[in-house]
């Protein structure tokens, strides 16, 4: 499967989705004006991946900051991951947050409450 790689910027996160390895990662800040426009290719890539996912998929999520519309898009990304779990494949979502960033930890807790897939909250020192 084609690798999805998007360079991170001041307003968009770095995206690295490796379908062959079942390794997906989102890292950085997500504050684009049009969040849907940025996340659309990610949704499309995930919809394609959903058709033939790897037996084990690990998702690394490490945000510094995201805006309100991105929070909805992130949820849509994680819901697609949830569907892989529902389909009987192994999925693990790893949510990283800075040790001083309580807000990001709480955001992770909120997301985990809405998802069925295993969700790990990991503190970065």
């Amino acid at each position: 499967m084609k690798l999805l790689s998007l360079e991170g910027s001041n307003i968009t996160p770095e995206i690295k989705f490796d379908g062959d390895m079942g390794k997906l990662s989102l890292k950085g800040r997500s504050i684009p004006e049009n969040a849907l426009e940025f996340y659309q290719p990610i949704f499309e890539w995930l919809d394609e991946y959903l058709n033939s996912p790897q037996q084990k998929t690990i998702v690394h999520v490490q945000f510094d900051y995201f805006n309100t519309s991105s929070s909805k898009c992130i949820l849509d990304v994680l819901k697609r991951i949830d569907r892989i779990d529902e389909a009987g494949h192994d999925v693990l979502i790893k949510w990283y947050y800075d040790e001083n960033d309580e807000d990001m930890m709480e955001a992770g807790e909120d997301y985990s409450a809405l998802l069925e897939a295993p969700f790990e909250l990991l503190e970065i020192e």
């Binding site: 990283y96 930890m105 807790e109 909120d110 985990s112 409450a113 295993p118 969700f119 790990e120 909250l121 990991l122 503190e123 970065i124 020192e125």
Partner: peptide, 12 residues
């Protein structure tokens, strides 16, 4: 890195 757990919390 330190694992915090996989606890699911339904906040009111």
């Amino acid at each position: 890195m330190q694992e915090k757990g996989t606890k699911k919390k339904k906040a009111n």
